[in-house]
Design a protein around this nucleic acid. Structure first.
Lengths: 336, 336
DNA sequence: ACGATAATCGAAAACGTTTTCGAACGAAGG
DNA sequence: CCTTCGTTCGAAAACGTTTTCGATTATCGT
């Protein structure tokens, strides 16, 4: 291991000037600067980050924090896209990314703040955080640079980025309406998830704008999972024979529902139209191919990571970033 | 920030004994040990990993290295499963995992060894490495703890873990044969990928064991991607009307092929039987559902991570670990 | 009571940096 | 020639640990 001391010796200067030239200080003569640079190059010197960080009490690593790998079972691949987006931003800004999962019990054991300090991370992007999670409150009034996905927090040091959920939901059901659907059901996610509320809001907005009565009996809460929607399909179909289209808060639920439909012989889209949300990769491979509204998770995560870096480097204030969406109509919507 | 010095002062001892009690040295009195522990608890002391690592010249972080996020586009979700497996092992052994992608140009710029040293990583698990990649040779004779996925390297400090590819391929086509197929084609991956070679070897073994002639014209090399198989479907089907079943070296290729089949009206499995490899999540969602041989990527990655840790902690020698497979027959194989 | 042995502790060096602050030197101004 | 100032450099402290090794005390056998 070649240290700063070695290059100092080889260049016939003190470690101080080596450190200074390497860090762009001005009080070093042009000639010696060149000499040092040359020697450092020859010796293939690279700074010891541990020592550097120890001294300056700061690292160049941002953390990706989410609840756990199991819950994010990867079927939908969104966590992967998020990772890829964060990583892309990290390399662009010369950061490293280290991943952490914090289960409920872990969250209770040690505080968010302490966790970040302990691990000497510069900033964090958090996803999959429920408003009921212990870390939620901690994060909103923390002085630790952080942006959380799929919420609309914004404070001094914490920002957020999410798709324009209410807008997306609104144009989604407007699209359904444009296909002459009037009785449009909705299968939503967890009641207390902020995206669920936003999606519901958009749903209602579209209806009211078109003078369609909001019928609370045909919107039901589920849990975003494929299985839940699969199981709820029978009774829903039974009880609401008049709905001609259903808007799902996630593709996974739409797919679970469709699976049950196939089993019991209700045809899609002939008997009922389906509109999902997310555009996960699965959605292009079902038969029929799922119509849905696309979120760009990669870009969303990139923005998130970029924002943490900005708030920790340029001391920007946290803010909420809204990402565009796009409705992609495939084969599960029938025009009436 | 509460340092070791603070707890030393509060406990009326030297920093030395604090460090010693915290690190389980034996030469500290039971009473003082208790006192120190109590104080440390009260002060919520947590060691500064940077300082600790700087001193001991070693970190507790293992790196996940692969070529890049784009190439591993995540459609198949296997990289995600690998991540999850590695992460699981890492937390079990109290390591952190930091992810790196090293593009070809990056590999040429700075050596694998230097890279590892610079980033102060304890060990690495590498995936998606082609034998032609610059890092390949470097890794096989490096003294850096490392295990690489999907190869069968084994040396002092580097191990490997992979599914039993030749075994899997063998029983796969044996299964096809048991369904009375005799003219079995194969769509393989890159010719120079070690898994491709192994899968081909298994394919041949099964044939020869059943006294079926190996017909090189019906096995073709592709590149593991969906698109490539999609494009090759037309001509393959045209030229080899007598093959009744095809064994694919990846589910993705099988799916691409099936898509083309649907478009041109060849029915699966009535007209041709399809057997994939991997069991990615997509495979359960196609119609018909893809029959395939399952690799447990999560467990495979877990083993890999566990092995690096063993070789770096217990100084075990690197070795090759072979993981079991399982053929799962769904709806794309017809018995003749 | 004496030396030997064991148990417990702490001073200090070290890890590889950054950064403060003063020293040395030459040039310029009077 | 003396002062002042700017430029360039280096000694040393600091970051928070670990670890060596010597010092101190207690115990014990004789």
């Amino acid at each position: 291991m070649v240290t700063i001391k070695d290059v100092a010796k080889a260049a016939n200067v003190s470690v101080t000037v080596v450190s200074k030239t390497l860090n762009g200080y001005s009080d070093v003569n042009e000639d010696t600067r060149r000499k040092v640079l040359k020697v450092a190059e020859e010796l293939k010197y690279t700074p010891n980050m541990l020592a550097k960080n120890l001294k300056q009490k700061v690292t160049k690593s941002i953390a990706l924090i989410f609840s756990n790998f199991e819950r994010a079972n990867g079927k939908d691949g969104v966590l992967f896209q998020i990772m890829s987006g964060i990583y892309a931003a990290a390399v662009d800004f010369k950061y490293e990314v280290v991943i952490y999962t914090r289960s409920l019990s872990e969250q209770q054991n040690i505080s968010y703040w302490k966790f970040c300090k302990d691990h000497k991370i510069a900033g964090a992007v958090v996803t999959g955080l429920k408003t009921t999670d212990p870390y939620f409150q901690e994060i909103v009034n923390s002085d630790f640079p952080c942006v959380v996905l799929d919420t609309d927090l914004a404070s001094e040091h914490t920002g957020s980025v999410s798709t324009d959920n209410v807008g997306a939901a609104k144009v989604a059901v407007e699209f359904l309406i444009s296909k002459n659907h009037r009785k449009i059901g909705m299968i939503n996610g967890h009641e207390f998830a902020v995206v669920s509320r936003q999606r519901l809001e958009g749903y209602k907005a579209a209806l009211s704008e078109q003078d369609i009565d909001f019928d609370p009996t045909i919107v039901v809460n589920s849990d975003y999972s494929e299985e839940s929607a699969y199981e709820l399909a029978d009774s829903y179909l039974q009880e609401h024979r008049d709905v001609t289209a259903i808007f799902f808060a996630s593709d996974l639920m739409a797919i679970g529902f469709m699976n049950r439909c196939r089993e019991i012989g209700v045809r899609i889209p002939e008997d009922i139209s389906i509109l999902g949300f997310d555009d996960i990769v699965l959605s292009s491979y079902t038969t029929p191919k799922l119509s849905t509204v696309r979120q760009n998770f990669h870009k969303l995560a990139y923005q998130a990571c970029e924002q943490v870096i900005h708030i920790l480097e340029k001391e920007e204030k946290g803010r909420h970033i809204m990402m565009p969406f796009k409705i992609v109509d495939r084969e599960t919507i029938k025009e009436l």
